[in-house]
């Protein structure tokens, strides 16, 4: 088991200690989905979780969110144990999870209201947030009238409206086409650099993880464990072309793939 601590001595934003998850199925008995994960995440850090599909990386994210209870180990956020979802940890799903009965502005304003933003200030704050994700024109439309990329922008704006310290992202760009995906990755990086939020990002795209992250946590096949933590170390603010052209990139890419394959064999 690799203890993945942050470089430097700051207090971690998130601390996972021996997090494990078992399911008791009806037919197949007990299934171990996550087999003890240790991980510290610094404040303001961008961390990706990658692993073979079905390895439990989304479940790990849900445990950090407090939506799913771990069957072993602890998750601390700012030194306090996580037992339930809280406004300090916002989540963005691959399937957007927008309220279909609220307009784009309505979805964002709803999250503002939960944070206690006074009614009078909500329209301006909503407009600002939609501006951030480039959606000022579609504020009055319903989610059903938007493309996938626009829906995901709304979901990100809604989560930002909640003003969480930690952004949990569950394969947020997995359902989008390649072009939209690239665009949203760049926008996410810009927002992250501006707001300084801590991001935990689940993906199965090695390219995405290397391009976005400070650290890439490679998980094994079930039961998931940390195989290795990779630090791409490309200069910030990042430029996609420069990252791809970086002499270190091919080796990093190959290393992650090697781990994924080895983790699969184990």
């Amino acid at each position: 088991m690799t203890a993945a601590g942050p470089p430097g001595g700051t207090r971690p934003k998130l601390r996972l200690a021996g997090v494990a998850k078992e399911y008791t199925g009806r037919r197949r008995g007990t299934v171990r989905a996550i087999g003890g994960v240790d991980l510290d995440v610094r404040p303001g850090e961008f961390v990706s979780l990658v692993g073979p599909s079905g390895c439990g990386k989304s479940t790990l994210l849900y445990i950090i969110g407090g939506f799913v209870a771990a069957s072993g180990g602890t998750v601390d956020c700012d030194g306090r144990p996580v037992t339930a979802p809280g406004p300090d940890r916002g989540i963005v799903f691959q399937e957007f999870a927008l309220f279909p009965w609220r307009t784009v502005a309505g979805n964002v304003a709803w999250a503002l209201a939960r944070r206690g933003v006074p009614r009078a200030e909500r329209p301006a704050a909503t407009a600002r947030l939609l501006e951030t994700v480039g959606l000022a024109e579609v504020a009055r439309l319903y989610p059903a009238e938007l493309s996938g990329g626009m829906k995901q922008r709304v979901a990100i704006a809604r989560t930002l409206a909640q003003d969480p310290d930690v952004l949990l992202m569950d394969e947020p760009f997995g359902a989008l086409d390649a072009q939209t995906r690239a665009l949203l990755q760049e926008e996410l990086l810009a927002v992250w650099e501006r707001t300084g939020k801590t991001v935990v990002f689940v993906t199965h795209s090695v390219e995405e993880a290397l391009y976005l992250s400070d650290r890439v946590v490679v998980l094994s096949r079930r039961p998931a464990r940390v195989l290795e933590v990779i630090e791409p170390g490309f200069a910030r603010p990042r430029d996609r072309e420069k990252v791809l052209a970086d002499p270190a990139y091919p080796a990093l890419h190959a290393r992650v793939w090697e781990l994924l394959r080895a983790g699969g064999a184990a």
Binding site: G65, F67, P87, I91, A97, W110, R158, P164
Partner: peptide, 23 residues
């Protein structure tokens, strides 16, 4: 009801009653 909608509402700080009414 799509569970992720309820999760989103919980994460935003909506209590039980509000989740019932709003989601």
């Amino acid at each position: 009801v799509e569970p992720r909608l309820l999760w989103t509402a919980r994460a935003a700080g909506a209590g039980r009653v509000r989740r019932l009414a709003a989601v």
